[in-house]
């Protein structure tokens, strides 16, 4: 058993804030109205620190730490915004645009996309590196949903929600490095999945247009993640 949470104080961007030791830097920042951008994180799912957008500077650490996955400690001093962090965050967004085929203008998630918003937020108006133009798969075999790898940013929210909330574990990651992809079952067509319950949670947690509901046209796909908040409140109430 881990020790019970204690109340502590720490500094985020020169503000003194109170927190519990079981909270993450991101939790505490949000509670205090301090904005830290996130992309792979979604409250209610296990943080994995994969996108690196939420990296912050913590005094005493020579490495940048992901706010979503780092627990607060007493007397911690956190910096959430700096010229360097802004630059790195913009680079992450550039990497995501360069590694997929993100064409906002024709995307179902246009104007409802977290990647698009993140580009806007970080001031990423153009790429300073070459696009990779990978040839990627679109799986429309499911009767209600579509998976478009061109728009996937490997945030693994679908993997986590399916495993942790729905309990089906239909999604997982296959391949390494730049070749990594999310797959259903053992890389079988989604429509033929024997584990998928067609609950649609993966579609709704997907930050981009990579997972969408069939029949939605460009800019029509709005994601609803309120079910996670309900789950989260339930979990907090119990503990």
């Amino acid at each position: 058993m881990s020790a019970p949470a204690r109340v502590i104080t720490l500094h985020i961007d020169d503000r003194e804030v109170g927190a519990h030791t079981d909270q993450t830097i991101l939790d505490v920042a949000r509670e205090n109205g301090i904005f830290i951008p996130t992309l792979c994180h979604l409250k209610g799912l296990t943080p994995i620190g994969a996108c690196r957008i939420c990296l912050v500077e913590v005094a005493g650490f020579n490495k940048l730490l992901p706010a979503c996955a780092t627990k607060v400690t007493d007397g911690m001093r956190v910096v959430t915004h700096s010229e360097r962090l802004d630059r790195y965050r913009r680079r992450v967004v550039e990497f995501l645009f360069a590694s997929g085929n993100h064409v906002c203008s024709v995307c179902v998630s246009n104007n409802n996309c977290e990647l698009q918003s993140m580009a806007q937020l970080t001031g990423m108006t153009h790429l300073t590196m070459p696009y990779r133009y990978p040839r990627l798969r679109v799986d429309a075999s499911h009767e209600r949903f579509v998976q478009d790898d061109n728009r996937c940013i490997l945030c693994q929210r679908c993997v986590r929600v399916c495993d942790e909330i729905e309990g089906a574990h239909t999604w997982d990651v296959m391949g390494r490095g730049i070749e990594a992809r999310v797959i259903t079952d053992l890389n079988e067509p989604w429509g033929e999945s024997s584990t998928c319950t067609s609950c649609g949670k993966c579609v709704h947690v997907c930050p981009t247009g990579a997972l969408s509901i069939k029949g939605t046209a460009a800019a029509e796909m709005k994601k609803k993640t309120h079910f996670l908040a309900q789950y989260w409140t339930l979990k907090e109430d119990r503990s």
Binding site: A50, F95, L96, I178, A180
Partner: peptide, 21 residues
């Protein structure tokens, strides 16, 4: 490094490929 990156985090996944190119 590019072929051994696991692909989980963005900088390593895409960065190693871009640097290799």
């Amino acid at each position: 490094c590019k072929s051994e990156s696991c692909g989980k985090c963005v900088p390593c996944r895409v960065g190693t490929a871009q640097m290799y190119d």
